[in-house]
């Protein structure tokens, strides 16, 4: 069932509707709800990606659209390329010198993000990221949240105070830390540190928040709080979350994409993916038969 050819209908299913030629298969059962171009925040179009200057591709001809204002989960077994794809979305992979997008385009708000006139710094200001292991800076809580604003050149204390308070409130952390904003962020519990990282990310008001297994290092209670937070944040941000935990995907996401060995196997509403997947591999994975 695994397919590698780009012309295979399987991968074309997820391509944007813009092309009439490719639009026809989208009526197939495994992708009944394609995202219309105008609703798409992120359009991923036939993207292949390599870490070794194109010798081997870790992502192979991925195409799908991520809707605005929704939570999209990327699932799949380890090494399937989901984190790599996530890191392509704000060009964090640029940090690896030999990395390269070999084919296709990623468009965010209609703009090809790998175009030469795109500044990755500006891109990252709009596409924030929360990491697998919480990584607050070794600074105070306040400075952590204010960091993104400070590097944008905002020095006004009142504005910073306001933004810090608002972000911490939105991250549901304000009540816990309001009395010790100036103490070190490293003194917080793991769950609090991760929420602080979320607050730090949303303080700069990005359009999109990427989350790379944000709960994998947390205990169940802290995980639950982060999941609640994601549900609340969904109203303001487009969220793309990579997760290993399928229950989490069902709990937080609207749409789910399943990856396997660098390919997109299936992409649909979360309920469909978990309730009635059209591809057997997806079914095998979500029911825990491998992965």
């Amino acid at each position: 069932m695994v397919t590698t050819s780009p012309s295979d209908p399987m991968t074309e299913l997820a391509t944007p509707v813009e092309s009439p030629a490719k639009a026809s298969p989208s009526t197939k059962a495994n992708n009944p709800n394609p995202i219309a171009e105008q609703d798409a925040m992120i359009e991923i179009d036939d993207v292949s990606f390599s870490y070794d200057m194109g010798k081997t591709n870790v992502l192979k001809n991925i195409s799908f659209n991520i809707p605005a204002g929704k939570v999209t989960a990327l699932i799949g077994p380890s090494g399937c390329g989901k984190s790599t794809l996530l890191r392509c979305l704000n060009r964090m992979n640029d940090l690896v010198d030999t990395s390269k997008v070999t084919t296709g385009q990623i468009r965010i708000m209609g703009q090809d993000i790998n175009a030469h006139d795109v500044d990755p710094i500006e891109l990252r200001k709009q596409v924030g990221m929360v990491f697998q292991k919480y990584n607050p800076f070794p600074k105070s809580i306040y400075e952590n949240v204010a960091y993104g604003l400070r590097i944008q050149g905002i020095k006004n204390k009142a504005r910073l105070d306001e933004a810090v308070e608002k972000s911490l409130q939105r991250a549901a952390l304000w009540n816990e830390v309001k009395d010790r904003l100036n103490s070190s962020a490293l003194g917080l519990s793991g769950g609090q540190q991760q929420r602080l990282c979320i607050a730090r990310t949303i303080a700069v008001n990005p359009r999109i928040v990427l989350m790379d297994e944000p709960c994998s290092a947390l205990d169940p209670i802290a995980t639950a709080r982060i999941e609640e937070l994601i549900a609340e944040l969904q109203e303001e941000f487009t969220i793309v979350i990579v997760t290993h935990n399928m229950q989490q995907a069902t709990r937080v996401s609207d749409r789910t994409a399943f990856f396997y060995l660098g390919e997109l196997i299936e992409y649909d509403d979360t309920t469909t993916i978990f309730g009635n997947p059209s591809v057997t591999q997806t079914e095998d994975y979500v029911s825990g038969r491998f992965g």
Binding site: N90, M92, E122, R124, G128, F131, G148, I151
Partner: peptide, 19 residues
């Protein structure tokens, strides 16, 4: 992880280094 977090927030290379 510190460097990545700073870069993901839109910090430039030099801002990340210095701050």
């Amino acid at each position: 992880s510190f460097t990545e977090a700073s870069l993901a927030l839109g910090g430039s290379k030099l801002q990340t280094v210095m701050r």
